[in-house]
Every structure is written in structure tokens, then in C-alpha cells.
């Protein structure tokens, strides 16, 4: 591997890690507060990409405006999912799984019926050109994802550690019953967690729309990776999810470069399995007392 390929691969790894991080943090956060996994999280990602397709490619809005639209729209989908699925099935993990897996299919078909299946929707690249770093070409469109991920994770961290509602969210994740005894309305908190979760998946999908095939089924691959990241990081740990996302971004990109994407998935899962043998709670997971 020459120096240009190496730099190319490293930068691609960081981009992939950033996207994984945005997606997985939302999944980890929803799981932390509700103790239920959202199997339609990949379809939230897909919805974010379609928001950009509709507003930017079809309506001709500026790209940043279309990306910003994905945040409230998919965030609202998160809230609706919480009200209509997670609230009625709270505490029943199997029912939550069945219902959100069903929702995933419903969203896929809905989008397929509306905008078509088969032909991928083409979203033109708004930021042409590439940065030339020591012979490696890194598209601006990809590079843009890195600062966006930093900004989004920084905002989330600030919210969770310096804003009262964010701290209440952490309290609910650690001990929901005791949080209620402090007057923290648990139903508001699960709604908030799902809003953030949906918004972050939507943002990731929106950013990926110009550089990833936009199809109704694009959430499939994403949800698998997101679960690997969350399990690897330690289920409820936000910091763990970020760390695991970066690690997996490097593993996937490097293995894909020297071999292919299927092998990369296998190596990623094998890495998770090995980590879980050594640390069953995940990289930064907490052992329940």
C-alpha cells in the first residue's frame, strides 16, 4: 500500500467511523433510556436520505437546508415510534422487537411505493471537487461529514452533561424508577430520547445521500453495523458507541481496501466476538451491580 492509498484509506475510515458514530449514538441512547432496541433505526437513516432526495434533488432546495430538514422530520418519526410502539409495549422486549421490525418493513414498502424500487435515486453531489493530500483525493462531500459528526457529538455531550433535561435523561437510563421519584416524567424522557435518536439517524442518512446509493433498503446494512457498534461499545454507553464506531470504521475500510466488503463485515463481527469474550460488557460497558 503506497502512501497515497494509505492516506486515502485512513480518511475513508474516519468518514465511515463518523457516520457509524452518529447512527449508533442514537441507537444506544434510545436503548439506554427505554431498555428496548429500535429495529427500525436503519429505516430512520434511510428516511433521512430520502428527505435530502426530495428536498434537494426533487425540489431543488440548497443542500444544507435539505440536510437540516432531515433532523426535525426524522426526529418526529422517532417521537411517533415512541408514542405508538414503545409506549404501549414498554417492558415487553419481544413485542417491541416485533413491532419495530414490522415498522422497518412498512417504511421500506412505503418509500418503495412512493418513489419506486429498483432504480436507485440519484442525488447529485452538491460539493464537487476533492482535497489533494499527498496524492490522495478525498472528496469534499465526504470530508464534510467529519466536522458535522464532531459538531453533533459535541452538542449531544453538552446536552447530556450540562443541561438539566440531558442530565435527567442520564438519570432515567441509570435508574428509571428512582428518576421518577425525583419528579422526572419518564414518558417525556423516552420521547426526548427517541427524538434525539431519530434526528441523529436522519442526519446521518441525509449526509450520506449524495455518496451512498439511495434505495428503500439502504437501512439494512446500516442497522447491522449499528448494532455491532452499540454492542461492542457496551450497550448503553454513548462514549463506548463512539469509540467502537471509530474502531469499526477503520476495520471495515481497511479490510475492504485490501480484500472486499463481505470479508470486512466478517472481520468486524469476529472482532466484536473476540472483544465480548474478553469483556462481556463491551469496551466501555458498565457492569450492573
Amino acid at each position: 500500500m503506497d502512501i497515497a492509498t494509505l492516506i486515502q484509506t485512513i480518511s475513508n475510515s474516519i468518514v465511515a467511523g463518523s457516520v457509524y458514530a452518529i447512527i449508533a449514538v442514537g441507537l444506544a441512547m434510545a436503548f439506554g433510556v427505554m431498555k428496548m432496541a429500535n429495529f427500525a433505526h436503519g429505516e430512520f437513516f434511510m428516511a433521512g436520505a430520502y428527505v435530502v432526495y426530495v428536498f434537494y434533488a426533487l425540489f431543488g432546495w440548497p443542500f444544507p437546508a435539505a440536510v437540516l430538514m432531515a433532523i426535525p422530520i426524522v426526529g418526529a418519526m422517532g417521537v411517533a415510534t415512541e408514542r405508538l410502539i414503545f409506549l404501549p409495549t414498554r417492558g415487553n422486549v419481544l413485542a417491541g422487537f416485533m413491532a419495530t421490525a414490522g415498522l422497518a418493513f412498512i417504511l421500506q414498502v412505503l418509500v418503495g411505493q412512493t418513489w419506486g424500487v429498483g432504480l436507485m435515486r440519484s442525488v447529485p453531489t452538491p460539493y464537487m471537487g476533492a482535497a489533494d493530500i499527498l496524492g490522495a483525493n478525498i472528496g469534499w462531500q465526504r470530508l464534510l461529514i467529519i466536522p458535522t459528526a464532531f459538531a453533533m457529538l459535541g452538542l449531544l455531550w453538552f446536552f447530556l452533561y450540562h443541561v438539566k433535561a440531558g442530565k435527567a435523561l442520564r438519570a432515567c437510563a441509570q435508574d428509571p424508577e428512582t428518576a421518577r421519584l425525583q419528579g422526572i416524567k419518564i414518558n417525556r424522557m423516552t420521547m426526548l430520547a427517541m427524538a434525539i435518536s431519530g434526528a441523529s439517524a436522519g442526519l446521518a442518512g441525509a449526509l450520506m445521500a449524495p455518496i451512498h446509493p439511495v434505495t428503500p433498503y439502504m437501512g439494512h446494512g446500516v442497522i447491522l453495523t449499528a448494532f455491532i457498534v452499540v454492542i461492542l461499545g457496551g450497550m448503553e454507553s454513548i462514549a463506548g458507541a463512539v469509540l467502537a464506531a471509530v474502531l469499526l470504521g477503520f476495520i471495515h475500510t481497511f479490510v475492504t481496501t485490501v480484500s472486499d466488503a463481505i470479508v470486512a463485515q466478517m472481520v468486524g463481527v469476529a472482532f466484536m466476538a473476540i472483544v465480548l469474550v474478553v469483556r462481556p460488557q463491551g469496551l466501555l460497558g458498565r457492569v450492573k451491580a
Binding site: K167, R170, A171, Q174, E177, T178, R286, A289
Partner: peptide
Amino acid sequence: GRRVFPYM
């Protein structure tokens, strides 16, 4: 059992 929020 006190139930403090352990990671806060």
C-alpha cells in the same frame, strides 16, 4: 438500597 445514580 439507596439507589443513587451511580454514574452521575
